[in-house]
Simulated assay, not measured.
Amino acid sequence: MNPSKKIFVLYTGGTIGMSQSSDGLRPDTALVGKALQPFSDGMAFDWHICAPLIDSSAVTLADWRAWLALLADKIPQYDGVLVLHGTDTLAYTANMLALALEGLDKPVVLTGAQWPYDAPGSDAPRNLATAVAAFELDWPQVVIAFDGKLFPAVGSSKVSTETAAGFDNLHFGCLAERQGESWAAVSVPTTRSAQPFGVHLPAADAAVVCHTLIPGCAVRQISDGLKHTDAQAVILQSYGHGNAPADAAFIEAVGAYVRRGGLVLNISQVPQGCAAAVYAQGSALRQAGVVNAGKCNLETATALLTLAVSAGWDAEILRGKLQSLGLV
């Protein structure tokens, strides 16, 4: 490992550094002095401690804007970035960083833990070791390091609150797995983008909502909501391959929302699903102007639409972005 590597550490909070309080686990700064000490012979770590540290369930657009603005300044100065983050929304933040950091030429690694660093049997030390080892690979992309594995940010989700295997990427898989002191099953090319480095900040007022289809009255409720929403974009979690009831009022409400300038991104609610033009049942949505998102999951869809409304993309630009990410 190159001892000259300088790593910028963005500590946002999360279970990994929490301590017990009378109200339950809360973010703490005690992690800072010790968590990366075992790796100090190989790398130099410069910490930025967010104030306040947060439980990741409280993350906001303002947090994403602040973190991205900070990374825009720090990334050119360092050999890599380590983000310590709570697991609840870690995959959302990973997707936002992956899509907002353009022309990235060095690794950005996110990790957290299911149990606090000081808890008996905590997964935190292993996750930190995996994250630090990821800098050996020098991949110019955003990855999640968890349970000895590296996952690409795009397509990743939190899949468990019960085990150390908290994350997975059902469409794009695991990029590499740590076995002892070496990496196995490495599957990522190390080519770098020809684009110059840049950062796209989400707008502070970007308004994206998600509606999930379920049997029953959901169609009527979604229809009523679309008539009155001020959201600029909607994620529709539909069935299977992107199917929805061919309810006339629902289809009309979707079409009217699109005609008003709203974006509707159709994703499958199946964890390993693909919203595509497969069944006739989904044709009414397509005709209403909905964009099928292919393999896009909720976390990726959220980041993608947030940036879409921030930059004023239309449906065609959105489709192009989906293609460039290998989602359709």
Results as ranks from 00 to 15, higher is better:
residue 1 M to K: 09
residue 6 K to D: 06
residue 11 Y to C: 02
residue 15 T to F: 07
residue 20 Q to V: 07
residue 20 Q to K: 12
residue 22 S to G: 12
residue 24 G to R: 11
residue 26 R to K: 12
residue 30 A to Q: 14
residue 31 L to K: 06
residue 33 G to S: 07
residue 33 G to Q: 01
residue 36 L to N: 03
residue 37 Q to S: 07
residue 43 M to Y: 15
residue 50 C to P: 02
residue 52 P to Q: 08
residue 54 I to G: 02
residue 55 D to I: 09
residue 56 S to Q: 10
residue 56 S to E: 10
residue 57 S to G: 13
residue 62 A to H: 09
residue 65 R to C: 04
residue 70 L to R: 15
residue 72 A to C: 04
residue 79 D to T: 08
residue 83 V to C: 12
residue 85 H to C: 01
residue 92 Y to G: 00
residue 93 T to L: 14
residue 98 A to G: 10
residue 100 A to I: 02
residue 101 L to W: 04
residue 101 L to P: 02
residue 106 K to T: 13
residue 111 T to F: 08
residue 111 T to C: 15
residue 112 G to Q: 09
residue 117 Y to I: 01
residue 119 A to S: 14
residue 121 G to S: 04
residue 122 S to P: 02
residue 123 D to L: 02
residue 125 P to S: 09
residue 126 R to D: 11
residue 127 N to L: 10
residue 129 A to D: 15
residue 130 T to C: 14
residue 131 A to N: 09
residue 135 F to N: 06
residue 136 E to C: 10
residue 136 E to L: 13
residue 139 W to T: 09
residue 141 Q to W: 01
residue 142 V to C: 03
residue 143 V to N: 01
residue 146 F to A: 15
residue 146 F to R: 00
residue 147 D to L: 00
residue 148 G to K: 05
residue 150 L to C: 06
residue 152 P to H: 00
residue 153 A to T: 09
residue 153 A to C: 09
residue 154 V to R: 06
residue 156 S to K: 00
residue 156 S to T: 10
residue 161 T to N: 13
residue 162 E to L: 05
residue 164 A to D: 15
residue 166 G to H: 03
residue 167 F to V: 00
residue 175 L to K: 09
residue 181 E to R: 15
residue 182 S to N: 07
residue 183 W to L: 10
residue 184 A to Q: 14
residue 185 A to M: 06
residue 186 V to D: 03
residue 188 V to F: 12
residue 189 P to E: 08
residue 191 T to A: 14
residue 194 A to H: 08
residue 195 Q to A: 13
residue 196 P to R: 12
residue 198 G to I: 00
residue 198 G to N: 04
residue 203 A to M: 05
residue 203 A to F: 01
residue 203 A to C: 05
residue 203 A to S: 13
residue 210 C to Y: 02
residue 210 C to W: 00
residue 211 H to M: 08
residue 211 H to Y: 15
residue 215 P to Y: 05
residue 219 V to K: 01
residue 220 R to A: 08
residue 221 Q to W: 09
residue 224 D to R: 14
residue 228 H to E: 14
residue 230 D to G: 03
residue 232 Q to S: 14
residue 238 S to V: 12
residue 239 Y to P: 01
residue 240 G to D: 12
residue 240 G to R: 08
residue 242 G to W: 09
residue 243 N to P: 00
residue 248 A to F: 07
residue 249 A to I: 03
residue 251 I to D: 03
residue 256 A to Y: 01
residue 263 L to W: 07
residue 265 L to N: 05
residue 265 L to G: 11
residue 268 S to C: 11
residue 270 V to C: 12
residue 274 C to T: 10
residue 277 A to H: 06
residue 277 A to Q: 10
residue 278 V to P: 00
residue 282 G to E: 12
residue 284 A to S: 11
residue 286 R to D: 01
residue 295 K to A: 13
residue 296 C to P: 06
residue 300 T to L: 07
residue 305 L to R: 13
residue 306 T to C: 10
residue 306 T to W: 05
residue 306 T to F: 02
residue 309 V to D: 06
residue 309 V to E: 05
residue 314 D to H: 05
residue 316 E to K: 06
residue 316 E to L: 07
residue 317 I to K: 11
residue 318 L to V: 03
residue 321 K to Q: 15
residue 323 Q to E: 14
